[in-house]
């Protein structure tokens, strides 16, 4: 298997504070890859660096063989990297359908003029956008909510809406920032099944950050464990779970939920 994402020697400082220190990892194509570590260990910063929100102080990020280090976020997305957010960032006053439809940016959009005049090419595009979005809502069990204002959805559905929106960007790599946060055990179970299904159905590589140990151990095929910006273990879940440094640094302190 080749690596869809390859990070080499990546570091990032905020002022004098080192948030990420000399990260090296490869996410294999088609995998469900997990990054775990306590708060402040640099997990979300890693996502922000990959998606171009921050520019790494040092190091290189390659995606599908191309260098994306320091590229603009919207360009990185259009290359095929999508993400969700730890604190939900939905488009609250837009409909559920529009939330998903607006994410289809990889295909060209008609000019302002063609859109204003509602030319046939524009209408055809709109039909395609809508059909695709409805299909995604179906997969994520949200089609019944299509017309509702997104901000009126319950929490669990909003999390699924964010995944639907991310998938609408047509990604080959999907970054999930704490997807199970705030969910009850039943919801977590469903989410695990959903993520596995999404990976198979949409042929995406999944890269997720999580606190929830059972979730990560049960779902991920490969795991990287961080502590204070440094990698302390990496490998398949069975081995990582037995690693003494992991037990001490992470499970020991946090009690493993």
């Amino acid at each position: 298997m080749s690596a869809v994402l390859k990070v080499t020697g990546m570091s990032h400082w905020f002022g004098g504070l080192k948030a990420v220190s000399n990260f090296n990892f490869e996410v294999p194509e088609g995998a469900i890859y997990g990054l775990i570590g306590p708060n402040g260990s640099g997990k979300t910063t890693t996502f922000n660096l990959i998606t171009g929100i921050y520019k790494p102080t040092e190091g290189k990020i390659e995606f599908s063989g191309g260098d994306i280090t320091g590229a603009k976020p919207y360009r990185i997305v259009r290359k095929g990297v999508a993400r969700t957010f730890q604190n939900l960032r939905i488009f609250g006053s837009m409909s559920v359908l529009d939330n998903v439809r607006v994410a289809r940016q990889y295909a060209p959009v008609s000019s302002f003029l063609a859109s204003t005049l509602r030319l046939p090419s524009y209408k055809a595009e709109e039909r395609a956008r809508k059909a695709e979005a409805m299909n995604l809502l179906d997969v994520l069990h949200l089609s019944g909510r299509a017309k509702e204002q997104a901000k009126n959805l319950p929490y669990g559905e909003l999390r699924r809406l964010e995944i639907a929106r991310a998938l609408a960007t047509n990604p080959s790599l999907l970054l999930l920032d704490e997807p199970a946060a705030g969910m009850n055990p039943k919801e977590v179970q469903d989410l695990m099944a959903l993520i596995a299904r999404v990976r198979d159905e949409f042929k995406v590589t999944v890269f997720l950050i999580e606190h929830h140990m059972k979730f990560v151990m049960g779902l991920c095929e490969r795991i990287k464990v961080l502590d204070f910006g440094e990698t302390i273990a990496e490998g398949v879940p069975e081995l990582v779970a037995k690693d003494p440094r992991v037990l001490e640094a992470y499970l020991g302190k946090k009690g493993g939920h």
């Binding site: 929100i53 960032r89 488009f91 609250g92 837009m94 529009d98 607006v102 609408a168 960007t169």
Partner: peptide, 17 residues
């Protein structure tokens, strides 16, 4: 729609492309 998305959440708009 793209413009309204920018109004609603600029970062998320950026990150849907």
């Amino acid at each position: 729609r793209n413009m309204i998305a920018i109004r609603e959440n600029e970062l998320a708009a950026d990150l849907v492309g």
